[in-house]
Design a protein around this nucleic acid. Structure first.
Lengths: 223, 223
DNA sequence: TTAATAATTTAGACAAACCTAATAATTATT
DNA sequence: AATAATTATTAGGTTTGTCTAAATTATTAA
């Protein structure tokens, strides 16, 4: 099914809002997309006809199974492009969202497959969000990048990815290794750098790029 | 000035048609863009207001200086993406046009600069067409890739780019070196491979990728 | 040079994706 | 439970970019 850019954006927005609410309301969606509620209603009617959402007037909306599938391919495209921009084109992690927002609408399964292969099938984007695979599944790995933690959250280091010399030297310097207990102190939104306490002992300050390569044991039971 | 995708496509189409005719006609442009003459007239009025074309009803159109500048940035984006797709994502040279046609509309000067740097500032796209630089200038180099020649044309090898072992081994194998006289025998559109005669002596068959790395002395006086 | 033909423009319509203002349904409050 | 406040929908309008059909202008051929 061929969707317009605007239709894709609506699907994606519902997908994201759905994680924090059962049914998404017209107002919320309008706020997120910077349009007006009336415009959202128009679009919802169209998406309902295309069977991408479950929509009853006045009762909010929810993605259908097919809608969720579509959403996941869009999220996949978005996060792969983000990874590309940071990893290959040297963008900072906080500069890439808008660009990925545009690139994600180039709809070519082959392009995305090739990009994925080229990037070495990354499992997480530069913000630490998981990249769904071709089938829409997230990594089953029981570990998530450190970047996914919020301030005051704790975790245990399960693995360091990309074991090149620089990464290893850095984590040694910061007293971080497999098994270390981490407590996030503060996240600086300006550059995404993170202040954390290691093994309740050392206060360290690390870059988001390094954080991405530190995997934390995942406490199961989250969405 | 912010242009819509459709406006960009019209500008680009005029740019390309302009190389084979003084003033571009409504019908030609409609044919190239797969729209109707009436639609072209509409768009031309808008582009005239934006001062991107010189347009007199019934007398065809021509890009203004600013229009040409815009066209060149679009061509630049298109060709850089084509180069990326072939060089990095392993697409075949004949598969990339449609994709580049979409990617070219992501308008971010910074993205294009970074991409250019990442690709090592290529001077020619995979079809052998020159990639304009940031200022819209084409390579002043007196050499063009072999891929730019048509059947029966001749040339002299001036340089081999990308002097890695594989390329060198291949050109040795095919009896090609600096100074060799080349005559194109036939171009196979199926894969872009080229049959050519080297120094009037050896008949060889090479891939378009190799051809791209063989630079031919440019006979001045062509557009 | 006039008539026929071809190219171009104009007029009017349409779909997509927005908008504002008015109305209707739901939820919260007294 | 009635009313107020919130949220959603409808009605009708706008802009962009397309279209068809009719009218106009330019070119070519008789």
């Amino acid at each position: 099914m061929k969707l317009s850019i605007s239709e894709e954006n609506h699907i994606k927005a519902i997908y994201h809002l759905q994680s924090s609410m059962e049914r998404v309301g017209t107002k919320d969606l309008a706020a997120r997309l910077k349009t007006k509620p009336a415009s959202v209603t128009d679009m919802m009617k169209r998406l309902k006809i295309k069977r991408l959402i479950d929509y009853k007037p006045y009762y909010g909306f929810k993605l259908s199974a097919e809608g969720k599938r579509v959403a996941l391919t869009i999220v996949r495209r978005h996060r792969l492009w983000e990874y590309f921009l940071v990893e290959k084109l040297q963008f900072d992690w906080d500069e890439v969202h808008e660009l990925a927002e545009e690139l994600e609408h180039v709809r070519s399964p082959l392009l995305i497959e090739r990009l994925d292969t080229y990037l070495n099938r990354p499992k997480f984007d530069p913000h630490g969000d998981p990249i769904p695979d071709r089938e829409g599944n997230f990594s089953q790995e029981d570990a998530v990048p450190l970047t996914i933690l919020k301030a005051n959250q704790k975790g245990k280091v399960s693995r360091i990815t990309k074991n090149n010399k620089e990464v290893i030297d850095l984590i040694m310097l910061k007293h971080i290794r497999k098994g270390s207990r981490i407590e996030i102190k503060r996240i600086f939104t300006i550059d995404g750098s993170i202040e954390l306490k290691v093994d309740n002992k050392y206060v360290e300050h690390i870059s988001p790029l390094l954080a991405q390569n530190i995997l934390i044991e995942h406490e199961n039971g989250k969405k």
